[in-house]
Every structure is written in C-alpha cells, then in structure tokens.
C-alpha cells in the first residue's frame, strides 16, 4: 500500500514539474479563464449575474484542467512512447492517474485567481454575499466530482485514441450541462435531464446558491446527489480499468501515436 502511495506521490511530483513548463497548462489556468470572464462580464454586466461570469470563468478553467488536461496526460504518454512503459510496470494505471490528476486539480484551482483579479481590476466586479461554510463544502464536493469523472475517463483514453477527441470536442458542451455560467433551468427540459446525471451540476448549483443565487438552500440534498453520482462513476471506472488492461494489450494500441 505504501508503495502505491509513494508511486502516486511521485506521479504527482513528475506531473507538477512537467506542467509548470508546459505552455498549454499555463494557457489553461491563466489565459483561458480570463477570456471567458471578460466575455461573461461584458455580456452579464453588473447586477446579480456577475458571480456567474467570475466564478464561471474559474469553473471553466478548473474543469478544463481536470478533464482535458487529464486526458492530455495519457495522450502525451502515448506521444512520448512512455505509455507502454507505465503499462508494463507492476503499478496499476489508476495509481498513476490519481497522482497526475491531483496535479491537474492543483493547477485547475489556480484558475480562480485570474478570474477574480480581472473581474475586480478591469470591471470592478466581485462575488459578494458568500456564505462561507456551504461555499467551501460545495467546492470540495465539486472537486470530488471532477476527480471522479476524470479518473473514470482516463482508461478510455488509454484504450482508444479517439476517446480524447470526443471528450475534447465536447468540452464546451460540458460547461452547458454543468451550469457553469448560467443556470440549467433555462435549458430545454430534455437537456436538464441529461445534466442531472452529471455530478458537477449539483455541486455547482450548491456553489452558486452559496453566493446568493435564488435556488433555495437544499445543500445537503445537492451534496448527497453529487457525491452519490461521483461514486457511481468510480464503480464504472473500476470496470474500465479492468478492461483497459486486457483490451489495450489485445489490440496493441498502446504504442501508436
């Protein structure tokens, strides 16, 4: 067990070092949220909606790092020819993925800093009326949801080269389903149904409720649903990791760039 913890910690450290010098990472947490906050504030202006622009920009960056960068990591391993080597190690892929993912979450969380800064300095807007305890808990629940989704998706990237292009293509779609920049209640009913099986959606609703958005205060329910869905993903992920060890070995797709 301690050997696995050590391996995950080392994967985290490696990933942090690689990311720190990776321009895509720095674009992802620094520039990308900025552009969306600016767009959001320009459209939503002042009033009660600016929280959506500022927090929303941060959420996009946070999610983007966890989801796209998490997938990128596997794709990069494939490109550099190291995917075979980590698959050939006596350490399960999930241990390595967890380490790497923690580093993407660290960088992703940084997204909130440029988002808040540009709102404050360029538009003189900030997120007000924060209810600290529910806000903090909601943030943790959201982080858990991101973590579980990304862990579950990673084996798909190892198995199929096209999996990454699918999730990458749908990155913006997820902003819609998660209600990152506007409430999902305005979406067509069928999309709301799709959004409701998406764990981050519930945590994001709680997060915005904690900034005074008029959703009611059913925090416990929202947190519980989000956590339950996240755990559901992990169960699916458990099967996927078992599958990846067999399937990737059968097709020999590990080596292909």
């Amino acid at each position: 067990m301690t050997a696995y913890v050590r391996a995950a910690a080392r994967a985290f450290e490696m990933s942090m070092k690689l990311r720190a010098v990776n321009p895509f990472t720095n674009f992802g947490w620094l520039v990308f949220p900025l552009i969306f906050v600016v767009l959001g504030l320009a459209l939503l202006g002042g009033g009660g909606k600016s929280a959506y622009a500022i927090l929303g920009g941060g959420l996009l960056g946070y999610w983007g790092m966890a989801y796209v960068e998490g997938g990128n990591e596997i794709q990069n391993e494939r490109w550099s020819g190291t995917l075979e080597q980590i698959m050939g190690c006596p350490t399960p892929l999930v241990v390595i993925v967890v380490g790497k993912l923690c580093s993407s979450l660290v960088f992703g969380a940084l997204s909130f800093f440029p988002a808040i800064a540009v709102g404050y300095f360029a538009f003189h807007q900030s997120v007000q009326n924060i209810d600290p305890v529910p806000f903090a808990v909601s943030f943790l629940v959201l982080t858990f949801a991101f973590f579980c989704m990304a862990v579950t998706l990673a084996p798909l990237y190892a198995m199929w080269r096209w999996a990454f292009s699918v999730t990458n293509g749908f990155e913006i779609g997820v902003y819609v389903l998660g209600g990152f920049m506007f409430p999902i209640s305005q979406l067509p009913a069928w999309l709301q149904v799709v959004a409701s099986v998406f764990a981050p959606t519930w945590a994001v609703r709680a997060l915005y409720a904690a900034t005074g958005q008029p959703f009611g205060r059913q925090y416990a329910l929202w947190w519980a649903v989000s956590i339950a869905l996240s755990c559901g993903y992990l169960v699916i992920g458990w099967f996927l990791y078992r599958l990846v060890d067999v399937r990737a070995r059968a097709t020999g797709q590990l080596a292909l760039a």
Partner: peptide, 26 residues
C-alpha cells in the same frame, strides 16, 4: 528496453526519470 529515443520524459532530468520508474516498480 525498446530501442530508439522515445519512451523517456524529455523535459525532465535523467534522475527524475529514474526516480519515477523506481517508484512505479515499487
């Protein structure tokens, strides 16, 4: 060991590469 130059983390040091795999080999 597979021949060729691929299969290493080029943007990291040789020592980092070895430490990483040492941990993966438990």
């Amino acid at each position: 060991v597979f021949g060729g130059e691929r299969g290493l983390y080029w943007r990291l040091s040789g020592l980092d590469n070895l430490r990483y795999f040492a941990d993966l080999y438990r």
